[in-house]
């Protein structure tokens, strides 16, 4: 009797949250899907016209591909510089680990708009990078970095870096420190230890970091529009334009579903790969 009431009580504790998610999360998303099946922007005629319109336009395929590619490039960039930082982190004394963790987390708590603004100053025509390179004599003309994909990827690398580092550090600090000494004692070079021991074991953190960075960078509307400018078009801009400028809600809903489904597909594929990779090590 007591166990039954206890069970009910425990389960019921999550009920308010579940109801809130049903009313404020699932219902809106279902409605979003429903709205896509209207032909006109006044939503009177049901039909598939907006799907046909969105997917009939080759330009939109390019926008989807560019959006996903932006995510992939940002993931690659955060991984290339973030993974070594995580490797260095685990070797530090606890005291320095605290300091470094503070530095890593700090940008995460700074507004995305502030970070985006900062990169305008850094990458601008008379910004830090151009001033520095001109004075060093590396270039004679200021580089155009704003409103280019390169500039956007550099900015997103900083903006999303904490999302990559936190899961990586979390997994890597739990690795057995003797593993590396054992590999070294057996004659493995540090490179070989990295690629055959540390990398496979840190796969869960690596995959989690990639997922978060990918999801966040593909939907980073402010950074994409402010640093990317008007000529680099990604899905969030299309969604915003169609819904709040053109007021074609069905088309905006179709574009949202395209973003949602493509991001979730990549995430599902990544987590499947991650499970396989870590399964291969542990199993």
């Amino acid at each position: 009797m007591t166990t039954l009431t206890a069970k009910l009580r425990d389960w019921q504790l999550a009920l308010p949250l579940a109801l809130a998610f049903a009313a404020l999360f699932l219902a809106p998303l279902l409605l979003l899907l429903g709205v896509t099946f209207f032909n006109d922007d006044r939503m009177t005629q049901p039909g598939l016209a907006q799907w046909a319109k969105f997917f009939g336009d080759p330009f939109n395929y390019k926008v989807i591909a560019d959006t996903l590619l932006l995510g992939v490039k940002t993931v690659a960039a955060t991984l290339i510089v973030g993974y070594p930082l995580a490797l260095v982190f685990v070797d530090l004394s606890p005291r320095w680990q605290r300091v470094l963790l503070f530095v890593i987390v700090m940008p995460l708590l700074l507004s995305v708009v502030v970070r985006t603004f900062a990169w305008i100053v850094v990458l601008g025509h008379e910004g830090l990078v151009n001033t520095l390179l001109l004075r060093l004599g590396v270039i004679t003309e200021p580089l155009k970095l704003l409103q280019t994909e390169l500039g956007l990827v550099i900015s997103l690398t900083q903006i999303e870096m904490p999302l990559m580092l936190l899961p990586l550090i979390s997994v890597m600090s739990r690795l057995e420190p003797n593993l590396r000494d054992a590999a070294a004692a057996l004659g493995a070079s540090r490179w070989r230890t990295l690629f055959t021991v540390i990398l496979p074991l840190s796969m869960p953190g690596l995959v989690a970091g990639c997922l978060l960075v990918f999801a966040s960078s593909t939907t980073a509307f402010i950074s994409q529009t402010v640093i990317g400018g008007v000529r680099l078009i990604y899905l969030p801009l299309v969604i915003w334009q169609q819904s709040l400028v053109v007021f074609n809600w069905p088309l905006a809903a179709v574009a949202s579903m395209a973003l949602l489904v493509s991001i979730l597909t990549v995430i599902a594929a990544l987590s499947w790969l991650g499970r396989r990779a870590s399964g291969a090590v542990h199993g």
Partner: peptide
Amino acid sequence: LGESLFMSPLVLPGIAFGLAALMY
């Protein structure tokens, strides 16, 4: 299942949820 649902706003594109909430 509930846990995955409650955590999903972290990876779901926020802009799609924002639009969905406005429509709703």
